Simulated assay, not measured.
Amino acid sequence: MNARAGTEFPQVMGGAKPSMDYAELRRDPEYAELNRALLDLVPVGSGPSVLDLGCGDGAVSEQLLLRDPAMSLVGADPDPALLDEARARLGHRGRFVVGDAASVSRLFPRDAFDTVVLANCIHLVPDLAEALDAIGEVLAGGGRLVFNSAFYSGAEDAADVPVYAELVGTARRVARKRGLPLARSAAGRPAGLRRSAGDYQAALAAGGFTGVATTERAFTLGRRFLTALCSTPMFATAALPGIDRHIAAELLTETLERQYRRAPFTITRRCVYFSAIRP
């Protein structure tokens, strides 16, 4: 995602340890293209103050600064190790602080930013209303919130659901044969994965945001994307609950490579984009 050219925001799930397991997904060029459309929603010019919330290793922060070198950029993420990478990437061009979506109103003064960006991480925010309230406090009047997600109810193309089902079902059968402790359900599965585009629209309206613009784009993604997706804790723990996420990721990747070793394949996935104004 960054997850994310997007980054992911794993700590906001409620204490889960952030990890580098999203690195492959962030580096995937198809995933980067999926996120590039988000950058087009960010206003440029006049030296704006921008918060890249869930900035991870600074990949999106770097792209934002390339588009508008005059902006004053702050990145926030709950993972100090990723923030060290962001500082190494950008040096003095940005300021980076430890924090999650719900904490921004405690970290920054009111009306501190002209724009807040969440690049493909909103689905990992557990309490959307709380996060939007906090973001609304640090956005200046007339400021813009932009975010996207390729992980929401309706993101998968109906024709591709059997691909996911076959992959997960085969991996589960292999896990059982190997005596791995497969649970019935995934504890702590992010609630955001069950949100729909309509849920985000309703939350923005309830949070007092106006001028809400929503678009959905479909992307054709190949094996590299799905392999990278299998390596993320979000997907691995949901597919193979009860199994160590690293082992689960390895098993899913192994299953994917075995099933599609000879036949190239693609999947279609939608990404939803939002832009909203704080009155």
Rank of each mutant, 00 (worst) to 15 (best):
M13D: 09
V104L: 06
L139F: 02
F147S: 10
D199P: 00
A155T: 05
L221H: 05
P241A: 05
E137H: 11
G207S: 06
L167C: 03
R95I: 15
G242W: 12
D84Y: 04
R89Y: 04
G242D: 04
T268Y: 10
L221E: 13
V272F: 04
I277R: 07
G58S: 09
E156W: 08
I135K: 05
D160K: 03
E62L: 01
G211H: 04
M1P: 01
M20N: 09
P48E: 15
P69E: 13
E24I: 12
L128N: 00
D57H: 04
F151E: 00
P18C: 05
T214D: 05
R195C: 00
F274M: 08
N120F: 05
V212T: 07
V42W: 02
S185W: 15
A129Q: 13
R217Y: 03
Y152A: 02
A171R: 09
L139R: 02
F219Y: 12
L124I: 00
A249M: 07
F151W: 06
D160F: 11
T237V: 13
P69T: 10
A158M: 12
L145P: 00
D28N: 08
G136P: 00
R173Q: 14
G192Q: 07
G6F: 08
D40E: 14
A134Y: 10
L221N: 09
F113N: 07
G142S: 06
A239F: 09
T215W: 13
G222T: 12
A101L: 07
A81T: 10
R195A: 00
Q63D: 12
F108Y: 07
L73E: 00
A140F: 01
M20W: 15
Y164L: 13
A16K: 15
L180V: 11
A202V: 15
L53R: 02
A159R: 05
F219S: 00
R93A: 01
S61W: 04
G188L: 04
G207I: 15
E62C: 01
L41W: 00
D40M: 10
L226N: 01
G188A: 02
A239S: 02
R4E: 01
D40N: 11
Y152L: 03
T237M: 11
A3F: 14
A175W: 14
G99K: 11
C230Q: 11
A88V: 14
G14H: 07
S19E: 12
N35Q: 09
G242S: 04
R172T: 00
D111L: 08
Q11K: 14
M1L: 09
I267T: 08
V104E: 06
H123D: 08
R144E: 13
R194Y: 07
I135G: 00
A155M: 08
A5V: 14
C55V: 07
A101G: 03
A239H: 01
D84G: 08
R262H: 10
D100V: 10
A236P: 03
G198T: 10
T266F: 09
R258K: 13
K177M: 14
F209L: 12
T214I: 15
G15H: 11
